[in-house]
């Protein structure tokens, strides 16, 4: 049986261009998997209408949201609100992983109350350290690499069937590993290591979930 996976990938400003880059690998991986169908709402396609249509018609079991957010909403292309309390009931019977700021706090809780199996996200801002000279090419930004690794660890764990709780624990372990190991002179030409470690520690602190810890794709 083919499993349905939905991803939103806005790409209209610096931060979303980094998140867009982080998710390239998982899109490539899933496209090569025979038992998973991916709906890739990329760039201008990351709209509320298209998200609602995909959630209703394709009934994806796993939804990966990338974009700006706050406690009550997650945004898509050009910061259009694509998920909030008015349409969050569409997350029923789904696992949501939201790589956005704060949305776990309120929206995550409401989502689970409305029937989502699990909502994974951050209870505070998602922090990132960028190399300003690489803003135009996020894939070449060495400062962003540890954040990309974390993103890949979490979504790979979920896509390949680990439970929400195990995926979070694996990702937290990756955070700890990176905090301990990051920072050779080769990694850190501009002395940004302490700040990168702090941002990783911040994200580690606020990554969490609501819902069923055993929920799996």
């Amino acid at each position: 049986m083919v499993k349905q996976f939905l991803i939103t990938r806005p790409n209209h400003d610096i931060i979303t261009s980094y998140l867009h880059d982080f998710s390239k690998e998982i899109v490539r991986t899933v496209k090569g998997a025979q038992d998973i169908h991916i709906t890739n709402l990329e760039g201008p396609n990351a709209t509320r209408v298209k998200l609602e249509k995909a959630l209703s018609k394709e009934k994806p079991k796993l939804v990966f949201l990338n974009g700006h957010g706050d406690r009550k909403k997650v945004a898509g292309h050009k910061d259009e609100i694509i998920l909030d309390n008015k349409n969050v009931d569409l997350t029923k019977n789904k696992i949501i992983y939201s790589l956005s700021c704060d949305s776990l706090t309120d929206l995550g809780e409401i989502s689970v109350k409305k029937g989502a199996n699990a909502y994974i996200g951050y209870n505070a801002s998602f922090m990132l350290v960028r190399d300003p000279s690489r803003e135009g090419t996020p894939s070449k930004d060495k400062n962003a690499l540890p954040f990309k690794k974390i993103c890949v660890t979490m979504i790979n764990s979920l896509v390949f069937g680990m439970s929400a709780e195990t995926s979070i624990e694996k990702t937290k372990e990756e955070y700890r590993k990176l905090i301990r190991s990051y920072g050779t002179s080769e990694d850190d030409p501009y002395g940004d290591t302490p700040l990168i470690r702090f941002a990783l520690a911040w994200n580690l602190e606020f990554l969490d979930m609501h819902g069923d810890p055993n929920a799996a794709f």
Partner: peptide, 8 residues
């Protein structure tokens, strides 16, 4: 030195 948070 700066940290990026959400919302630019």
């Amino acid at each position: 030195s700066k940290l990026s948070l959400g919302g630019s």
